[in-house]
């Protein structure tokens, strides 16, 4: 009965499309359409208040021209770059790798260490900001001041004096777990026999680490870097709660700059131009990520 077979398969195909439809509609309405719409908005002088709010005009590439000569925009790009490199590429990665490597040993307290390192990952953004306001407060009684006093370093008003370094530290704290989990998965794929063989040949632990471990987890490291870079570009909440971009724009990440331009200065058109730049960056990294992933479907 080839005819019945065909119509049955077509019916199933339609049913599958139907049950996927609600997800597609939501993604279209709240992600794809806004993303495309942001390009249009960035070419207008759309605003939340004033004359432009009632009658937005098409202004061509004027927003982008303004962007180009806007020192605060370049500052936010630089701050974001330093933030991504400091926290995702260096902080989280190094501490995550150290934790992953050390936790491969059969230590007795392994589950406890594991849980504690995972804990910051669960903290809501505002709570993270709030917790660290206490840690990084100024004066000799604040926790960080007391810790560094141990090493003879004088107390400071940490968030005022070293704002960018401090938010890098906080983001490192939040993300050690992600790096550790990914790298642990990468490490567990390396077979013990390779190390056994290297040991027979008299390799030192350091040699084994640089010549075997690192090269073999290089693909995992690469993917981790892509994932953590895009998720770090998206960070807003805890930094906003901690510093609101200040002092003097020192922690004004591109996400905070978008927010301030759009919802504090009410310039939606200009804010969109900045957002389009952020979207383009993320998409670029995303394309590399998808190609590297070699999705099997």
């Amino acid at each position: 009965m080839p005819w019945i077979q065909l119509s049955y398969e077509r019916r199933v195909a339609w049913q599958l499309r139907l049950i996927l439809l609600p997800s597609v509609l939501l993604l279209l309405a709240f992600v794809i359409y806004p993303a495309v719409y942001s390009i249009y908005l960035s070419l207008t002088n759309e605003a939340l208040t004033g004359a432009a709010a009632l009658k937005p005009r098409f202004v061509g590439t004027r927003n982008y021209a303004r962007l180009f000569s806007d020192a605060k925009f370049w500052n936010s790009l630089l701050v974001t770059l330093i933030f991504v490199i400091g926290s995702a590429v260096i902080g989280q990665f190094v501490l995550g790798l150290v934790s992953a490597v050390l936790l491969r040993r059969p230590l007795r307290w392994k589950p406890i260490f594991n849980s504690i390192i995972l804990l910051p990952n669960a903290v809501p953004e505002v709570v993270a900001g709030f917790m660290w306001i206490s840690m990084l407060a100024g004066g000799e009684r604040a926790t960080l001041s007391r810790i560094v006093a141990f090493f003879g370093i004088p107390a400071a008003d940490w968030l005022q004096t070293f704002p960018l370094t401090m938010i890098i530290i906080v983001n490192t704290w939040r993300g050690i777990a992600t790096a550790m989990i990914l790298l642990t998965a990468g490490l567990s794929a390396i077979s013990e026999e390779i190390y056994e063989a290297a040991r027979m040949d008299g390799a030192t632990p350091r040699q084994m680490f640089t010549r075997i471990t690192l090269p073999l987890i290089a693909p995992t490291i690469f993917l981790y870097m892509l994932v953590s870079t895009v998720s770090t570009i998206a960070i807003f909440g805890f930094v906003y709660a901690l510093t609101r971009g200040g002092p003097g724009g020192a922690t004004e990440l591109i996400s905070i700059y978008i927010y301030n331009q759009s919802f504090t200065a009410f310039q939606l058109g200009y804010g969109s131009a900045v957002a389009v730049v952020a979207l383009a960056f993320s998409l670029l990294i995303g394309v590399v990520y998808v190609r590297a992933l070699k999705v099997e479907v």
């Binding site: 993604l27 309405a29 709240f30 992600v31 794809i32 359409y33 806004p34 993303a35 719409y37 942001s38 908005l41 759309e46 895009v230 570009i233 998206a234 960070i235 807003f236 591109i254 996400s255 978008i258 927010y259 759009s262 939606l268 804010g271 969109s272 957002a275 389009v276 952020a278 979207l279 993320s282 998409l283 990294i285 995303g286 394309v287 990520y289 998808v290 992933l293 999705v295």
Partner: peptide
């Protein structure tokens, strides 16, 4: 996968308008 990399912070302005 590509949608996953789009930062919500960059989508928020057009999303708000929509």
């Amino acid at each position: 996968l590509l949608i996953r990399v789009l930062p919500t912070t960059a989508l928020i302005v057009p999303l708000y308008k929509v």
